[in-house]
Amino acid sequence: MNCQKTGVTRLLLTKIPFYKELVLMSFRCENCGYENNEIQSGAQVGEKGVRFTLIVETERDLNRQVVKSDNTSVKLVELDFEIPASSQKGEITTVEGIINRSIVGLEQDQPLRRIQHPETATQIESFIEKLKKLKELETPFTLVLEDISGNCFVENPNAPMIDKKCKAQYFARNREQDHELGIFTKEEVTGEKNTDVMRSECGFTLKDLEGEVLQFPTNCHGCGSPCSTNMKMTNIPHFKEVIIMATICDRCGLKTNEVKSGGGIEPKGIRIEVDIKEKDDFSRDLLKSETCSLMIPQLEMEVGPHALSGRFTTVEGLIIAVKDQLNDPQHAFIFRDSEESRTKTQFEKFIQKIDNSMRDDNQPDERLRVMHYERSFDQNEELGLNDINTENYQMS
């Protein structure tokens, strides 16, 4: 695009640990020396958008790796400075790299601007100095990344421990955002209305499927090979109806199971706290929904709702699932082969903590605490409840 002659583009499909597949694209022209690097997501668009809010306080925070897709907007809150998604291509960079690229973009037209619009050039020069000051970390600043495709990522340098400086919020996309990503409903494409599974039209409801095992084709999450998923609706005593889905891949041996609610969303959220008294408590049945997070304060461990998906298991099974995910070869090499011995050591210590917790014979008083609470606006937004229309919806 610089000299209009032929250059070479190299493509590499890779996977970033704790993230997903990416296509790296590197272009170089031997005629004029022009170079350009971009990334594109190699995975499907996420079910929800994501918003990362990072408090930058130290040099280590400046060096955090950041993955930006083509749909990622960037905002520096203290400077009220926003970079729209349409103005930058996807890339793998750092927090400092984002600031540097912003500075370069603003300086690009300054020579001409100083001649034609000197006052504007002076204001931009002053703003550039503010951007440079951010890198000196005289005061903390806030970086917000928002991606409607759910395909951006901010490195946690303290993984697998809790990232106290970075908060991830998932949100449901609206119709305009779906269209921006090229996602349309069948009704929008064909003009045909989708028909729900109702007794009046199909002769049965989900209740009639209870106890039946349904099977449908899918692709393995591990190797991408065709396999089958078994689905069954069941009723958990003293709780409600749930849908259990299990997948086994004959090619790579991957086994997954997920649980989804068969009913609606409750009016309030719920927080359950339980102290483990003895080893028998590890056998407690446990239902984790796909919007449920897990926290073990004694291990300084917090697992977000999207990390383990929904599942019906035991306390021990859930902890083992966390350990297995950390030990997965796709994830573990970021620590096992890390050049930073400190990162490698903290990962190994954390795994040891999990092992010790499974052998812990301490017997504190057992308490089971169940608390219902009103959801916040952001939590309702993640569930898609804020804009839901419950009146005259047939007319909308």
Score class of each variant (00 low, 15 high):
N2R: 08
L13K: 05
P17Y: 03
M25N: 03
S26E: 13
S26R: 12
R28G: 03
C32V: 12
G33Y: 14
E35I: 13
E35H: 08
E35V: 12
Q40Y: 09
Q40G: 10
Q40C: 12
G42D: 08
A43I: 05
A43M: 10
Q44S: 15
R51N: 09
E57R: 13
D61E: 10
V66A: 05
K68F: 02
K75Q: 13
F81A: 06
A85L: 01
Q88W: 08
K89W: 03
G90W: 09
E91N: 10
T93M: 11
V95C: 05
S102V: 12
Q108C: 04
Q110N: 00
R113A: 13
I115F: 03
Q116P: 00
H117I: 05
A121F: 15
S126F: 06
F127V: 11
K132F: 01
K133Y: 07
L137V: 02
L143K: 04
S149W: 11
G150T: 09
P157G: 06
P160V: 07
Q169E: 15
F171N: 08
A172H: 04
R173V: 11
R173H: 12
E180F: 01
G182K: 04
G203T: 00
G203W: 02
F204N: 01
T205L: 00
L206Y: 05
E210S: 01
Q215A: 14
Q215D: 14
T218A: 09
C220S: 06
H221Q: 06
G224F: 01
G224H: 02
T229M: 13
M233C: 11
M233V: 08
H238V: 06
H238R: 14
E241N: 09
I244W: 02
C249W: 01
G262C: 01
K268N: 13
G269A: 14
E278Y: 02
D281V: 04
F282S: 03
S283H: 13
R284F: 07
S293P: 01
S293D: 07
I296H: 00
V303Y: 00
A307W: 08
L308C: 12
F312Q: 14
I320A: 10
V322M: 05
I334P: 06
R336H: 05
E339K: 08
S341Y: 11
T345D: 03
T345Y: 02
F350I: 00
F350K: 08
I354D: 03
D355K: 12
S357N: 07
S357E: 12
Y373R: 08
R375K: 14
S376R: 06
F377W: 09
E381Y: 03
N389S: 10
N389G: 01
T390G: 00
Y393R: 11
